[in-house]
């Protein structure tokens, strides 16, 4: 997992048009991911994790929201493209072929009246130009690869004939059918019980070992991310508040929000624990974000946090935090970037 980044997102801003004004869902998100790497993205619901991923694949309906700023350079086999500027037609060559996506709910995410084999074959026919018979045998192979027993019979079954964990395996088979180099998994195990969750995680690790597949794994479950990711992004209020290698993040969290998350997990048993709540509520995103989104829930907040918005600033190699305060040293951190300011203050 060295070398050039596969995907580099810079300054992504996504806004939704609600009945009573604009919702600032994503307020400048930047990150990158290298081939073979697993990037964990954690945060509470409403923190912008899913919206970020949907934005990257152009899946936000234009009637609902729009991407207002940013770039997302992806190194496709045919050359570099900016995902945020692609037309729907151009996306047709990216989705499935370059980037596969797995969604949270494997029940509603599969077409109930189409056999799983055909749902996998669709991608093969579209991207690899395979015929009916070839794509069917490839679909059977894919089912075997994701650990479905008796795939040559199961290929003609409908989604409702599979268990939840099996359906999610089918979803992964669909996502990976045309051999993408990046898989975005949006809370793929949230709807599953713990044992099945572990099996799916093991499957993804195994698939990654077979190829240079990069994975973005979105979750609100720190335990899942700890067991899977190489690097972790912590999201809050439509921004990234901390980014670090997985061990670094758990041993040496820098942002007060990350600390709050970790502190709420009892003892050392990280596995399987959900994010416990921190006092207060997530910020309303009705206004443009011009202060620290965590300021009103933060026990370390200083005056500045309500006036200026800290940018994600490197602390050490591969560890960044968006906070003015150095908790360990109990003083303001030097050189924190200010990316927005409230007027008249």
């Amino acid at each position: 997992m060295t070398g050039e980044a596969l995907l580099t997102v810079d300054g992504l801003v996504t806004k939704f048009d609600a009945a009573d004004g604009v919702v600032h869902a994503i307020n400048g998100v930047s990150f990158d991911i290298r081939p073979g790497e697993t990037l964990g993205v954690v945060g509470e619901s409403g923190s912008g994790k899913s919206v970020t991923m949907m934005s990257l694949l152009g899946l936000i309906p234009s009637s609902v929201g729009r991407i207002a700023a940013g770039t997302a350079r992806y190194r496709a086999t045919s050359g570099e493209v900016d995902l945020l500027k692609l037309s729907e037609r151009q996306f047709g060559r990216i989705r499935g072929r370059e980037i596969g996506m797995v969604f949270q709910d494997p029940i509603s995410s599969l077409n109930p009246v189409m056999t799983v084999g055909r749902q996998i074959a669709e991608s093969l026919q579209r991207h690899l130009g395979l015929g009916r018979r070839e794509s069917r045998s490839r679909a059977i192979e894919m089912l075997a690869r994701v650990g479905i027993a008796d795939p040559s019979h199961r290929v003609d079954d409908y989604p409702h004939e599979f268990s939840g964990g099996m359906r999610q395996r089918v979803m992964i088979a669909i996502a990976l059918a045309a051999g993408p180099r990046l898989m975005i998994a949006d809370e793929p195990t949230t709807a599953l019980d713990v044992t099945v969750q572990a099996q799916i995680m093991a499957l993804v690790r195994e698939l990654q070992a077979e190829s240079e597949l990069a994975v973005i794994w979105v979750s609100h479950d720190l335990g899942v991310v700890a067991g899977l990711a190489d690097r972790v992004l912590v999201m809050y209020g439509g921004t990234i508040v901390e980014s670090a290698g997985v061990d670094d993040l758990f041993e040496n969290p820098q942002h007060p929000y990350t600390r709050g998350l970790l502190a709420s997990i009892p003892g050392t048993g990280l596995a399987g624990s959900r994010l416990a709540s921190i006092p207060g509520t997530p910020p309303s995103l009705q206004h443009e974000l011009k202060l620290c989104p965590f300021a009103d829930r933060c026990s370390h907040a200083i005056d500045r946090c309500a006036r200026e918005r800290p940018g994600l600033t490197p602390i050490s190699a591969d560890h960044s935090s968006a906070c003015f305060w150095d908790i360990d040293a109990s003083r303001q951190r030097d050189g924190v970037a200010v990316i927005a300011q409230r007027e008249g203050m």
Binding site: G92, D105, P112, V113, E122, S123
Partner: peptide, 26 residues
């Protein structure tokens, strides 16, 4: 607005294929 239509789009299917095979049929 169903999730499986989103899945179909995330496979890279052309708009017409999504409309015909996934939306209209259902």
């Amino acid at each position: 607005n169903e999730d499986f239509v989103r899945t179909a789009r995330s496979k890279g299917l052309a708009r017409r294929a999504v409309a015909r095979r996934h939306i209209t049929r259902n």
